[in-house]
Design a binder for these strands. Structure first.
Lengths: 333, 333
DNA sequence: TTGTAGGCGTTATCAT
DNA sequence: ATGATAACGCCTACAA
């Protein structure tokens, strides 16, 4: 690997001139040409490690998500890449494995790795595990979930209205006994979706039946027990709103096992999209989040902060969801 | 941020001693204690950038995959993480966006980023785009696909036997008219799966009908036309083997649209697993790859190479698949 | 506009 | 076992 020293020698200029050329400062045309020739000839590549040592910038950003194999997370990452890659930033991906201790650890880890900024999807909304990192001054942008008592930029989707639109659709199809499997109320998203549910019932003057509100973890196996409890009620709901992907999938699984026909014996509306959902018979109604856009906006805000622009901080951006309405929710009248 | 200089000053030793302590060399107990105290007091963290400049090791490895939101890829990454994270390596994830030019670009990009090694899932098997990078001496491990004329370590799944087991199962259920939607034959995986198909037919003395062999791209929308062509044959196959995830999904989509019942009007066996596949009625037969294991083994080989151990190079590791056999393939006799 | 030289935080090579 | 010091490759005053 050749260095700017080699380039300087070959071009018969000083390293300073070479460095200035690289960094876009004005130099004599004559020198520019000589330098360019030397760079080509030596196949010179700037060493980002050395530069990072001087400039305290590594051109890498950390992305910390609850789980790597979660399609929601990776679609967000695609959005992030779309923005960051053209600017030559690389992204270090870390998984918290759905675990808040690991989240705190990985936050510190990324800080120690000298990333220029961090985009994090918190595993819980009660507290930002890894807060010390934020306090150290490194830019951090939240995605998908807000965290209590935490003044940070964030890009989330509008969960209240997302849930509202789903429940509204269910109501308009004639359902009155509508169950929900909500997530843990210490998770921001989960809380908001429950709020949307309650708000819709309220707006349409439907009395809330506490028995129809079930809770479940937002982890991989969530929803199974909750769904079973709803099904074993004496006056069971005619429709169920499942508030995230695993809960939706697992509820469907239980339905299959029990021989319940979706949209016939029981209506279902889920959250988060998979292409496969639309291939069931009937296709599954879902609230779709703008995953890619979340990534794009998060990356853009982060860049702004990295470049020292702290205007409108903390900036909380709420993106609209959209609803896919299908026969998985039966039309009663 | 404090440096080892600060630590040295506070502990009243030289920077050399501190550095030696950090790197696990023997130092006087008395000094060790003083240094540890100083480190705690200053909350000293080693700067990996500076270290990297000296040692030419960054403790980051690059992972280059065709597409980030592909579940197969992310499961592999989880395996990689499992091995690398405990060792303090971080992984930079890059997507080639199913495009060989981008693959070449990203290979160079990773090299310029000074990663210690690269794990790459090639977008095609005809050539390793980014070969110059390999020639520069940086360790590279292939996953999922081998590349022609390319002597590199690789971890792949046994596609021949994977396909063989699927077709064998179909045959044993009484089918004789078995179609296949194969992938582009310049992709190693695709070629092997076709080989497995042919070998199974041969072993069971079933004549190959060229009309039953269709090809399709391995991209997101692959399989639709191919499936339609098979369906429009006068003497159409009774069962179809779809050789990757998108083709499987899209074939199912076409079936739905045409009102063909899977496992009844037409039998289907696919490739690659999604939890949703098992929730259809009937569930979908598939060949399942050991994704996580591929990641684990790839990371382990890469580590070996990074540490200078080039024994048994190039080492090609072939992992077994397993078959989920369901009623999506009808039992004829 | 250019060259020179010091420094970024480590590690490694000397002597001691 | 330790201390002093020269690298590592780059950027950036500073002086010219």
């Amino acid at each position: 690997m050749s260095t700017i020293k080699d380039v300087a020698k070959l071009a018969k200029v000083s390293v300073g001139t070479v460095s200035r050329y690289i960094n876009g400062y004005k130099i004599k045309d004559e020198n520019r040409i000589k330098i360019e020739e030397a760079i080509n000839q030596l196949d010179f590549k700037l060493n980002p490690i050395a530069r990072g040592l001087r400039t305290n910038k590594t051109f890498t950003i950390g992305v910390l998500i609850p789980r790597i194999s979660d399609i929601f997370c990776t679609q967000v990452i695609e959005g992030i890449e779309e923005v960051l890659n053209p600017l030559n930033y690389s992204i270090i991906v870390c998984s918290a494995n759905d675990n808040f201790e690991q989240q705190a650890e990985k936050m510190k880890y990324l800080q120690n790795k000298c990333v220029d900024g961090i985009i994090v999807m918190p595993v819980t909304s009660t507290e930002l595990y890894g807060k010390e990192v934020v306090e150290s001054g490194i830019p951090v942008v939240l995605i998908d979930r807000l965290v209590k008592d935490c003044e940070l930029d964030a890009v989330i989707s509008d969960n209240v209205n997302g849930a509202y639109s789903a429940v509204e659709m269910i109501i308009k199809k004639g359902h009155r006994k509508i169950g929900i499997i909500a997530g843990p109320q210490d998770i921001y998203t989960a809380k908001e979706r429950l709020t949307g549910y309650l708000r819709a019932l309220n707006d349409y003057h439907i009395e809330v039946n506490e028995n129809y509100i079930e809770y479940s973890q937002y982890t991989k196996n969530g929803g199974i027990d909750a769904f079973n409890r709803l099904m074993s009620l004496e006056d069971r709901p005619t429709a169920i709103f499942t508030t995230n992907y695993p809960i939706t999938v697992n509820s469907m699984k239980v339905m299959m096992e029990k021989g319940l026909r979706m949209g016939e014996d029981i209506s279902l509306c889920g959250y988060d999209q998979t292409e496969l959902f639309q291939m069931f018979n009937p296709p599954v109604s879902v609230v779709v989040q703008p995953t890619r856009e979340i990534g794009i906006h998060a990356a853009e805000i982060l860049l702004k902060r990295i470049n020292g622009d702290y205007s409108r901080f903390p900036y909380i951006q709420r993106l609209k969801t959209h609803l896919i309405s299908t026969d998985s929710v039966k039309t009663l009248f």
